[in-house]
């Protein structure tokens, strides 16, 4: 930018020192839980809800809400980072590790697309869903996940920007190539690592 500086611009918000090493570059600490959704909030009844793993898999799998409830759940304390610059630190979800779901389906491709009720999609390498890095969660802070935050179930991939954690998630499609999802086609970064500030296409 040729050393050009906007006159009088004060720069970023202050970060509490004890939290500095948990906050990726350009982020600020948010105590609330902002809602960001591109369209109307879908209504998904648990009676109609299913979760699928399909695409390039050895065996397509589908769970109803009741079947899903029989899977091994765990608490997931984590920090989440939204590309719009807020981070929520030390928050706890509860859900099923994606490892459990993928293992059941025997994935054969290296990429995955999360797809949601309402049409949202987001893509990522399948290894970012493995080894305890991702969950399908149904609770937040001990309560059923609110609808506006993706209830009854959303993906949780806390090491990537939070648009990579699809709300109202309906399944995972395993693919042999990377295919941009909803925001990835509209200017957001293909991968979205908050520690590398991969927000937009040219980052």
């Amino acid at each position: 930018m040729n050393g050009f500086i906007s006159r009088g611009f004060g720069g970023h918000r202050r970060v509490p020192e004890e939290l500095a090493d948990r906050l990726p570059p350009g982020q600020y600490v948010e105590s609330g839980f902002p809602v960001l959704t591109a369209g109307p909030t879908p209504k998904v009844d648990t009676a109609d809800w299913t979760f699928r793993v399909d695409g390039m898999v050895g065996q397509e799998r589908k769970w109803t809400w009741e079947e899903f409830g029989q899977l091994p759940f765990e608490d997931v304390p984590c920090d989440i980072h939204c590309v719009t610059k807020w981070s929520k630190l030390g928050t706890t979800f509860r859900g099923v590790p994606v490892d459990v779901l993928l293992d059941a389906a025997e994935p054969l491709g290296s990429y995955a697309v999360q797809y949601s009720y309402g049409g949202y999609t987001t893509n990522l390498p399948i290894e970012d869903l493995m080894d305890g890095k991702a969950w399908v969660v149904t609770e937040h802070e001990g309560e059923p996940l609110p609808r506006e935050h993706g209830g009854p179930a959303r993906m949780l991939v806390p090491h990537l920007y939070f648009w990579k954690s699809a709300k109202w998630v309906a399944g995972l499609r395993v693919m042999d190539h990377d295919e941009p999802g909803f925001w990835e086609e509209r200017g957001y970064h293909e991968y979205g690592d908050p520690w590398k500030e991969q927000r937009y296409w040219n980052d």
Partner: peptide, 13 residues
Amino acid sequence: PQQIRTERFGPTG
């Protein structure tokens, strides 16, 4: 629903 686009700001929930 696919033809309704939304932008939201606080308060946070």
